[in-house]
């Protein structure tokens, strides 16, 4: 019987997606948005911000004038923006910001010129949030959360100057320990898919291990729940240095839809230092693979 199965496996056509073509459509099926309009007008910006439940799309004011921001860290790929303003947004085919630092997940447009700003500054707590969800609007929540737990400020990304050049130490092999800090298991499903015959992550020399003590890289999903906070810290401590931490998914990058819950301690970078981020809700296996390749500087 097992022989029959093996024969079938050998006869099956090769489905491996070449590494080089992974990035080309890595966001297909993720519904992550791409801005398609030539110029970002205040009208479009306003309608987009009003349609977005997580305030991933938002408008703001700074010294240089009004701006519009798209923060992929908060985006859950719900498709509401594309449905509300189809002339300005469409589904992204490829998302280059996988496996990057926190600041690069944010894109900004100057509303006076309508053009995208090359290197947007990091925005923190000062931004007015105008999502559809009252839970994202600080004005609508009591300062002490529903259960008397103090409300956490918005995520302030840990400053990581440069990715450590781990590739020198790692050579061609990296051991990955996946850590679920409280996810909904959507990210886990796509991470597991990295081992399927389409993506076969072992091509990158990447291998999932069972113990943090064997790991070089922690792949952390989920908003860190208060019940997992301590376990996340201890798991991080158990990984021998030098180590890399990659936060995965909207929840891992920003707290996602759970950002304001009193039962949630915050995004991963509030608990442990994070080196790189892979957004998406959930990220597709191709986004995960290109993200990990970027982190490991393998292309």
């Amino acid at each position: 019987m097992i022989g029959d199965l093996l024969l079938r496996t050998l006869r099956a056509p090769n489905r491996l997606v070449p590494l080089a073509s992974l990035g080309g459509d890595n966001a297909a099926g993720s519904r992550m948005p791409e801005i398609t309009c030539a110029a970002m007008t205040p009208d479009i910006a306003g309608r987009l911000a009003a349609s977005c439940p997580t305030a991933a799309m938002r408008s703001g004011e700074e010294a240089a004038g009004a701006f519009f921001e798209l923060d992929y860290a908060h985006c859950i790929g719900c498709g509401r923006c594309a449905a509300a303003v189809p002339e300005a947004v469409g589904p992204a085919r490829s998302l280059p910001v996988c496996g990057v630092q926190r600041a690069r997940l944010t894109r900004r447009w100057n509303l006076a010129t309508g053009a995208e700003v090359a290197r947007p500054p990091l925005s923190g707590a000062a931004l007015p949030l105008v999502g559809l969800w009252p839970c994202f609007d600080p004005r609508q929540r009591t300062p002490a959360g529903a259960q008397g737990v103090p409300q956490l400020p918005r995520c302030a990304p840990t400053a990581v100057p440069e990715l450590p050049r781990l590739d020198r130490w790692l050579g061609r092999a990296v051991n990955i320990r996946q850590l679920d800090a409280g996810s909904c298991n959507g990210c886990e499903a796509e991470i597991s898919a990295l081992n399927n015959p389409y993506y076969d992550l072992e091509r990158l020399g990447a291998h999932f291990v069972a113990s943090p003590k064997h790991a070089d890289l922690l792949l952390v999903t989920g908003p860190v729940t208060r019940n997992m906070e301590e376990a996340v810290r201890q798991t991080y401590e158990a990984v021998p240095a030098p180590k890399l931490v990659v936060a995965v998914g909207a929840c891992g990058c920003s707290g996602g839809v759970f950002a304001s819950s009193p039962a949630v301690a915050g995004p991963v970078d509030r608990i442990i230092p994070v080196d790189a981020y892979i957004p998406g809700c959930p990220p597709t296996p191709a986004m995960l693979a290109t993200g990990l390749a970027a982190v490991l500087r393998r292309r």
Binding site: P134, G182, T225, M228, F258, S260, V264
Partner: peptide, 16 residues
């Protein structure tokens, strides 16, 4: 269990 408890039912309250 309940390590992944995220207070979802409380977050839902108040939403459109």
């Amino acid at each position: 269990h309940f390590y992944t408890h995220k207070g979802t039912e409380d977050l839902l309250a108040g939403l459109e």
